[in-house]
């Protein structure tokens, strides 16, 4: 043990680490490894056949595009909300700030049936969209609405603390050198909060890809059009096609790992540029 850990006078290391590893293995590692072992039984050819099936590809496309769109919407509006909460004071701000976390606390099924009811053609906001010929519920647009709701807190909560830490002196210096307010934002504030924005985007995007409960009620779930990959996993499971369900799950995991890796690399690159 001498090399494995540094000496400490505190007791309980073996017990705590032993329990941690046992619990982690039983609850998370062994079950997750079943996923990869099961998909390996398909063989590469069998795996490829499942994943390149037209309906599966269409569902992956819908899932990733809707998640991307929702995360982008949240970057834009999340930045404005974070800005307003950090920089301005107005009545009711404390309540608004607490309410931002609602999507973390509200069960997804509740969000799902409520958004579906609201954005149906006869729903309260839905009827106004319908008047202009825009169908929200039961279309891919509905999926974006649900995923925007689910991802809303991520960007706000990652940008908020960083924005609060931007030093007033830097802004003052830029302003005294003649920079307009928009220039200060673009050249001083935005570079400082850009890594946080990316993190918020990545978190919202990752959460949206796996989301199930809030989406299935509003999506309409039409194959090739508004069917998300998690739903396809569930329907394969209901037909006892365990291997097929597993193959889609692994494909989703791999694609999101690649995207998150790319975002991490981008973040690393921008933070390096920031410090020169």
């Amino acid at each position: 043990m001498s090399q494995f850990r540094a000496h400490s006078v505190l007791p309980g290391f073996n017990l705590a680490l032993g329990y941690t590893l046992l619990y982690l293995s039983l609850i998370v590692l062994i079950p997750l490894s079943a996923l990869f072992i099961k998909s390996a039984t398909l063989g590469l050819g069998g795996y490829w056949d499942v994943v390149t099936d037209a309906r599966v590809l269409a569902s992956l496309r819908v899932t990733f595009f809707a998640s991307f769109a929702a995360a982008l919407i949240n970057v834009f509006f999340g930045l404005i909300v974070a800005w307003v909460l950090v920089r301005y004071t107005f009545p009711g701000k404390r309540v608004i700030d607490a309410l931002v976390d609602l999507p973390f606390a509200l069960p997804t099924a509740v969000a799902g049936i409520t958004l579906a009811t609201l954005y149906a053609p006869n729903g309260w906001p839905g009827q106004y969209f319908a008047a202009y010929g825009i169908k929200v519920a039961y279309t891919p647009l509905g999926i974006v609405v649900a995923l925007t709701f689910i991802g809303l807190p991520f960007v706000v909560r990652t940008v908020q603390p960083v924005l609060a830490d931007v030093e007033a002196e830097v802004e003052e210096a830029a302003a005294s050198l003649g920079a307009g307010r928009l220039d200060v934002f673009r050249r001083v504030i935005l570079p400082a909060i850009f890594p946080a924005l990316l993190t918020g985007f990545a978190l919202a995007f990752a959460r949206a890809i796996g989301e199930y409960g809030s989406v299935i009620f509003i999506a309409g779930n039409m194959p090739y059009i508004s069917e998300i990959s998690p739903l396809l996993i569930v329907s394969k499971l209901e037909q006892y096609d365990y291997a097929g369900a597993t193959a889609i799950a692994v494909a989703m995991l791999l694609i999101s790992f690649v995207i998150l890796f790319a975002i991490n690399a981008l973040q690393w690159w921008t933070s390096r540029r920031g410090t020169r």
Binding site: L32, A34, L35, Y212
Partner: peptide
């Protein structure tokens, strides 16, 4: 590794237990 379950879709979290304890 402790953060891993946050990266997994809820549906997949259920699926892994079906793979372990399901009839097949």
């Amino acid at each position: 590794l402790i953060d891993l379950p946050f990266a997994v879709s809820p549906v997949v979290s259920g699926l892994v237990y079906v793979l372990l304890f399901g009839a097949q």
